[in-house]
Simulated assay, not measured.
Amino acid sequence: MASVVLRPGESLLFGRAPHAAATPGPGRIALTLPDCAAHVSRLVGELVVGENTVMLHWLGAGEAQLSSLFDAPGGARRVILARSMSALLDRGENQLLLLLGRQDGQSFTDLVVNIDVETDPELLSELPEGLDTEKGPGLARGSRDWFVALALCEPWLAGNDDYPRPPSNREIYERVRQWHGYTWNLQRPQRVDDAIRAISAIAFGVSDDPFAAPHVGRLQNIRFSVARRAAEVRLVTSADLADVERIARNRNFPPPEGSPASPAGQ
């Protein structure tokens, strides 16, 4: 990872190919992040240094996780950044994690960017421009794994992040049956487990898949991590949940009185 030093009044544009997405100028530097996956936006963020503040504006289509370590009663903070969000950086070490943003062959892992507010070695990078942004790894909409991911992540997508546990296999099966009708034999718990393993491999990337590593403790702890991660990398979204709920309501809604499908119309 190339490094740059920014001083008050300067800013840094960074991403897979920032030179192709924005025009650098005096005090405005562009930095290409190495080993970016093709689905990472050409311009993911802008770091702006003021007299007393350092502000990060997130411009990418995908999500990132911002963490900071600082001496405060609350300890470290961690927030998920989505497009058009901004965050003030804390003094000292900050870490920006582009979720599944690094590509090595066919494998995807998180791309880490370290930001030190106060001191950083001086090294400017001039790397070539990239091609158009591609679609990132995901699930086929309407597939078995997509519906299982939706049911698994429902507490997080609905805003219940303090939900005490991830949904059980039976609960996942019932939700898919309610939303879709056809259930791909998910009444068999092994089918649900198989789907969650497939979701985990996509959400974490093969090399970081918790199911592929030796683990101790309850598998429910891994399931909790998979559910939260799948929601963070937007394998399924709140909009997806709203869509399937709406479709299910419309499917089960009784036909208007007098219509051919209603008892009075027959």
Rank of each mutant, 00 (worst) to 15 (best):
Arg251Met: 04
Pro128His: 03
Gly9Ile: 06
Leu186Trp: 03
Val113Leu: 15
Pro189His: 10
Arg191Tyr: 13
Pro210Met: 07
Ser262Ala: 14
Thr183Arg: 05
Ser168Arg: 02
Leu96Cys: 07
Leu69Glu: 13
Arg229Ile: 00
Gln187Gly: 15
Ala158Arg: 11
Ala158His: 02
Leu235Gly: 03
Gly50Pro: 05
Ser67Thr: 12
Ala30Cys: 04
Gly92Asp: 09
Glu10Pro: 06
Glu122Trp: 09
Arg16Asp: 01
Gly75Asn: 06
Leu100Pro: 01
Leu139Ala: 01
Gln178Asn: 11
Ala17Gly: 11
Phe204Asn: 07
Ser84Asp: 15
Asp240Cys: 02
Gly50Met: 10
Leu69Thr: 11
Val233Gln: 07
Gly142Gln: 03
Gly105Ile: 05
Pro121His: 08
Leu59His: 03
Gly92Gln: 12
Asn250Pro: 00
Asn94Pro: 09
Val176Thr: 01
Leu31Gly: 01
Arg251Ile: 00
Ile29His: 15
Tyr182Ser: 12
Ala264Phe: 06
Leu56Ser: 04
Ser207Asn: 11
Val244Asp: 02
Leu219Arg: 15
Asn169Arg: 03
Ala17Asn: 02
Ala195Gly: 00
Ile80Val: 15
Cys36Asp: 05
Ala38Leu: 15
Phe147Trp: 03
Glu63Lys: 13
Arg177Lys: 13
Asn221Arg: 13
Ile80Thr: 14
Gly258Phe: 08
Pro121Phe: 06
Ser238Met: 08
Lys135Asn: 13
Phe108Cys: 06
Ala195Met: 00
Thr53Trp: 14
Leu124Trp: 10
Leu66Asp: 02
Thr237Ala: 07
Leu131Asn: 13
Lys135Glu: 15
Glu126Val: 08
Trp156Asp: 10
Ile247Arg: 15
Leu123Trp: 09
Phe204Trp: 08
Leu56Asp: 01
Leu96Asn: 06
Arg234Asp: 05
Ser125Arg: 12
Leu123Arg: 13
Ala239Glu: 14
Val233Arg: 08
Ala82Val: 11
Thr32Glu: 08
Asp162Ala: 14
Asp116Asn: 14
Phe253Cys: 09
Ala2Asp: 10
Lys135Arg: 15
Leu12Asp: 00
Ala20Met: 10
Ala201Gly: 06
Ala203Thr: 02
Gln187Cys: 09
Gly217Ile: 03
Trp156Met: 08
Ile222His: 05
Glu257Ala: 13
Pro155Leu: 00
Leu81Pro: 08
Asp35Thr: 09
Ala212Gly: 12
Leu96Met: 09
Phe204Glu: 08
Phe14Cys: 03
Arg91Lys: 13
Glu51Val: 08
Ile80Ser: 07
Trp184Met: 08
Tyr163Arg: 09
Ser86Glu: 14
Ala30Gly: 00
Arg77Leu: 06
Pro164Gln: 06
Gly27Asp: 11
Ala64Glu: 07
Ala195Thr: 00
Val236Pro: 01
Gly15Arg: 03
Phe211Asp: 01
Gly62Ile: 00
Pro254Cys: 06
Arg83Asp: 06
Asp104Met: 11
Leu127Ser: 13
Gly105Arg: 05
Pro214Gln: 11
Val44Phe: 03
Val49Gly: 07
Gly258Tyr: 04
Asp208Met: 09
Arg16Lys: 07
Gly15Leu: 03
Pro121Thr: 08
Leu88Pro: 11
Asp162Tyr: 11
Asn114Lys: 15
Ala264Leu: 12
Asn160Glu: 14
Arg251Thr: 02
